[in-house]
């Protein structure tokens, strides 16, 4: 029981971290919370369903195409909606919230209220450590999720673009003085934030089928991860995801299943009370 909860918690935790990375990136660079983050996740799930199931493309091709499409949509959204609100947090909150509802009702009109699911990549189940059976698709999702997180951190540490992102999230003015076009960086990083949501979406939609409103809990979990890890801290966000996954699953196993998701909010309240800057956040808030 304990081993199963811990394994489950780690799997879910990696997944939470993956969905939260995009939020963390956008907060760090632009100080904007994208309330439509969960809907971009769902959008990618629908795209990959369309490409792989309806059009019959190879699942991997469908996934790449979906991520690219969501990246482009994210760039358009930044350019048309978010850019004019720089410096006015109020309107970016309101605009992304309205956007999330608009996307949800569009999904409902186009795809209906039924769960949709792209085909699995692998079949069957594996016996983990000789203790319990675990679905192969879940294990594959775990590996893919960890790979995306690793790739993202490698990009952040090793490439010139990653250096620009780190510089801008540390000190925006200083980065500008050193010749970084922060306007373009904003656009790219918003697009990347959406693409990260999309990566999570295509990886997870075979396991958790997408419905029009399924993005809300996804986004909420991502927000709690980001606050727990510290706004704008990428490592914090991964740590936050793992902690949340573990707490949720241990709580579900030993306290109450129905209130599984409430534990997460209890953590949020504790963080706000005790350490508002989060695990790895900068102390000025």
């Amino acid at each position: 029981m304990l081993a199963l909860s811990i394994t489950n918690g780690l799997v879910i935790g990696i997944i939470y971290a993956l969905t939260a990375l995009g939020v963390s990136l956008v907060v760090g660079i632009m100080n904007v919370i994208n309330f439509a983050h969960g809907e971009f996740y769902i959008l990618a799930g629908y795209f990959s369903y369309l490409f792989a199931h309806t059009m019959g493309l190879d699942p991997v091709v469908a996934m790449v195409l979906s991520i690219a499409a969501v990246f482009l949509i994210g760039i358009v959204v930044e350019y048309t909606l978010i850019r004019p609100t720089y410096g006015d947090d109020l309107y970016s909150l309101i605009l992304t919230f309205i956007l999330s509802i608009v996307m949800q009702s569009t999904f409902l009109l186009v795809f209906g209220p039924f769960p949709n699911k792209p085909p699995n990549w692998v079949k069957g189940a594996t016996n983990v450590f000789g203790l319990f059976l675990y679905g192969n698709q879940r294990l594959a999702a775990l590996i893919a999720g960890a790979a995306v997180i690793a790739l993202f951190f490698a990009m952040l540490k090793l490439t010139w673009f990653g250096r620009m992102i780190r510089a801008t999230s540390q000190d925006r003015e200083m980065a500008e003085l050193n010749g970084i076009n922060t306007r373009r960086l904003n656009m790219l990083s918003f697009g990347m934030g959406c693409a990260l949501a999309a990566a999570a979406g295509v990886i997870l939609s075979p396991v958790f089928p997408v419905t029009p409103s399924a993005g809300v809990p996804v986004a909420l979990t991502a927000f709690v991860c980001v606050v727990l890890g510290g706004m704008g801290s990428m490592w914090g966000c991964v740590a936050g995801g793992l902690v949340l996954g573990l707490v949720e699953n241990l709580g579900a196993a030993f306290v109450s299943t129905g209130y599984k998701h409430v534990f997460m909010y209890l953590i949020l309240i504790l963080v706000l009370l005790i350490r508002p800057s989060g695990l790895f956040g900068r102390s000025e808030t």
Binding site: V27, N31, I33, L90, L93, I269
Partner: peptide, 19 residues
């Protein structure tokens, strides 16, 4: 803590209420 935190927490609050 400022604006963003209120928006996040109230959204979480409404989710708790639903649960």
């Amino acid at each position: 803590l400022g604006g963003i935190y209120l928006s996040l927490t109230t959204l979480g609050f409404s989710e708790i209420l639903h649960i």
